[in-house]
């Protein structure tokens, strides 16, 4: 017998449709979630501790004042201090092993921009911005965490607040960041 129920009213179709929708939404939520949590690092580097003992940001992230990227430290830099420090726990042992083998620690960068955004640290440092303005209060973090809500509106908001209307013409120009 020919069914008279339209296709979209059939319960099987509806269940399958709902499932597909759920999977898509689940995937979307998962995808968003995973872009908002700190990525797993080879060593859970305690920023708070290092700042506590007096290390300056630019001691390890040397490039910020002179170029587009702040850069990640080499193992040599870690080893400069850590060869004096007893490897008391697993993480310190890990540092020691990288240092002894002369291998680079495969740090995962956290604060990065999408491909179509061109960002340079140098002009921001020249404008006397501090690191925590964008990267958050690292004294409260172990591993670096991605900052929430850092979208284009956030960039422009700051550009507007920090500049005169004439300067804002330059700072809101598309070609400042997109090319």
């Amino acid at each position: 017998m020919k069914s008279s129920i339209p296709l979209w009213q059939r319960s099987s179709v509806r269940i399958v449709g709902a499932l597909v929708l759920l999977i898509i939404m689940g995937g979307a939520v998962g995808g968003i979630y995973y872009t908002q949590i700190p990525p797993e690092q080879p060593i859970p580097f305690p920023h708070n501790f290092h700042i506590g003992v007096g290390a300056q940001c630019s001691y390890c992230h040397t490039g910020a004042a002179t170029g587009p990227n702040a850069g990640l430290p080499t193992t040599d830099k870690c080893w400069g201090c850590h060869q004096q420090i007893e490897p008391r726990n697993d993480n310190l042992k890990l540092v020691a092993s990288y240092g002894a083998e002369g291998k680079q620690i495969p740090w995962v960068p956290v604060a990065i921009q999408p491909d179509f955004v061109v960002f340079s640290h140098q002009p921001h440092i020249n404008a006397e911005l501090t690191c925590e303005t964008c990267h958050g209060d690292l004294t409260q973090m172990t591993v670096a965490e991605p900052q929430k809500g850092q979208n284009m509106g956030w960039c422009l908001d700051c550009h507007q607040k920090m500049s005169t209307p004439e300067e804002f013409v330059l700072l809101s120009d598309c070609a400042t960041c997109h090319y």
Partner: peptide
Amino acid sequence: SGIGLTSATVITGC
């Protein structure tokens, strides 16, 4: 979650 990711891409724009 490739499909989900596509939607995520659209939503977050990156």
